[in-house]
């Protein structure tokens, strides 16, 4: 009898734990305004707000963690966290190894940032962050690709003359150009890449994907997602 009671208690405890399983959200923390570590040392930005809201709507307990961009997919697969929420564009190559949720940012423009507006991006030295769609695009464009581990280093390379231009999401580069006192300018040429930004999940986590998909659809339907996009990327941002 005692054993039976103990077993039931353990079972109850076990299922209780399983129900309250924390979902760990992994982000890069170096890509404002998408995601960054704020001055209090916490994850902040568009994706912080979005992620918290999605977890609330899906009734999940979520916890934030940061990981280097370069190893963000392998560490998802080895189970260090359950969701990638790091401004990751949906591409076919990535879709082969992980699952993407519905996109929460529509396909947006990538842009070049340079010291002068007359850089020829087909022949110049162009910096981009490693393992991004932008890096892939530059490699095929004929320009010389210079890769860096963090977004900040790609911009620093232009400032100190190592690269002629940096290629990244326009939403990341626009505030940098605006606050550089005219030192850096966005080039007129813009490129549409990828299928928008989505959450990255393990292929085996179909249940979790369904929950997040439903939450994203709900946010699209009631207009809160568009409002959030405008809050962080400006009134001119592409919305759903």
């Amino acid at each position: 009898m005692k054993k039976l009671l103990l077993a039931t208690a353990l079972l109850a405890l076990g299922t209780g734990l399983a129900a309250a399983q924390t979902v760990r959200l992994g982000t890069e923390g170096a890509y404002p305004p998408y995601n960054f570590i704020n001055d209090q040392g916490e994850v902040d930005g568009f994706e912080r707000k979005l992620g918290d809201e999605l977890c609330k709507r899906a009734a999940l307990t979520c916890e934030w963690t940061t990981n280097e961009w370069d190893s963000i997919i392998p560490n998802l697969q080895s189970g260090n966290y359950d969701v990638i929420i790091a401004g990751m564009s949906i591409t076919d190559e990535r879709d082969e190894v992980i699952n993407f949720s519905e996109n929460y940012i529509p396909p947006a423009a990538s842009a070049y940032l340079a010291l002068t507006p007359d850089v020829d991006v087909k022949t110049a030295v162009v910096s981009a962050q490693v393992s991004t769609i932008q890096a892939g695009y530059v490699a095929e464009s004929g320009a010389t690709l210079l890769e860096f581990a963090t977004p900040d280093e790609t911009v620093a390379a232009v400032r100190n003359g190592e690269a002629d231009a940096v290629f990244a999401d326009k939403d990341y580069l626009a505030p940098i150009a605006a606050e550089s006192n005219g030192e850096l300018v966005l080039l007129a040429e813009e490129v549409q890449l990828g299928g928008g930004v989505g959450l990255g999940l393990r292929e085996s986590d179909t249940e979790l994907k369904a929950k997040f998909d439903a939450a994203i659809q709900a946010m699209k339907a009631d207009g809160t997602l568009n409002a959030l996009i405008k809050e962080y990327f400006g009134e001119a941002a592409v919305t759903f």
Binding site: W64, T65, S78, G79, V97, S204
Partner: peptide, 24 residues
Amino acid sequence: QPIRQGTEFRVCPQAKIPSGNADA
């Protein structure tokens, strides 16, 4: 379920170190 699924490494939630519920 298999532990290795393609490139994924999946053990049961109770076997995670530290446990998935642990805080940062």
